[in-house]
Design a protein around this nucleic acid. Structure first.
Lengths: 99, 99
DNA sequence: TGAAAATATGAATACTTGTTCATATGTTAA
DNA sequence: TTAACATATGAACAAGTATTCATATTTTCA
């Protein structure tokens, strides 16, 4: 398959979003559904600003989308491929650990 | 699905390997088969040391494996999941660009 | 309106990481 | 053995990035 150098660059940029523990943990949480910023921070034992900063990165990349409800902001995955990519990588990790 | 925090860390570390343009380009080349260090450097227009450095990273992670033939070193993918992960990400990029 | 709650943002810092340049290592052939 | 080829490696530098801390913004409710 022929892939342009620009596309390969975009591809690496895309994988970078998954290449951070905090973001992967946030994404993993969201695979089960929508969450508020505080819920994420509490479940992952992270500071609120850390979560907000990472959510901004994911939001800018259109990987998550926000929804305001009162003073709370709920975030959910905005891309149907995220789960698939997550699972594909996870399968590899579990397979590797399994032997 | 329940995933341990350690596994999520490993998963993010794994995606990091795909999160660099140089490495993605090397991986993409290798999807078509084995190549020597110099072949990679020439095809990607990179310095030899850059390629060697990145190959070491991929080799340490068991993503590529080396084979010596004379004074040349040939590298090939050492993981059957790499192509799948690459394609999964690429599908997303192409799908995104398509609209 | 004012205070509290929830989230966002900016600047500073520390850390990681990719590239460059120089050089070392290993291999072949004359 | 020596020279040339192919690759690997180490140190230094530069650039990128995640976290922290402080503060700003937005919304609700008394």
């Amino acid at each position: 398959m022929d892939v342009s150098i620009d596309t390969l660059f975009e591809l690496s940029e895309f994988f970078k979003f998954f290449g951070d523990t905090t973001r992967i943990r946030i994404i993993h949480l969201m695979l089960s559904g929508e969450l508020s910023v505080n819920e994420i921070a509490e479940k992952l034992n992270l500071e609120q600003s850390v979560v907000s900063h990472q959510l901004r990165i994911l939001r800018t990349a259109n990987l998550v989308k926000p929804r305001r409800d009162g003073r709370k902001m709920f975030y959910s995955l905005d891309d149907e491929h995220i789960g698939l990519i997550f699972d594909t990588g996870l399968t590899h990790i579990l397979h590797k650990k399994g032997k």
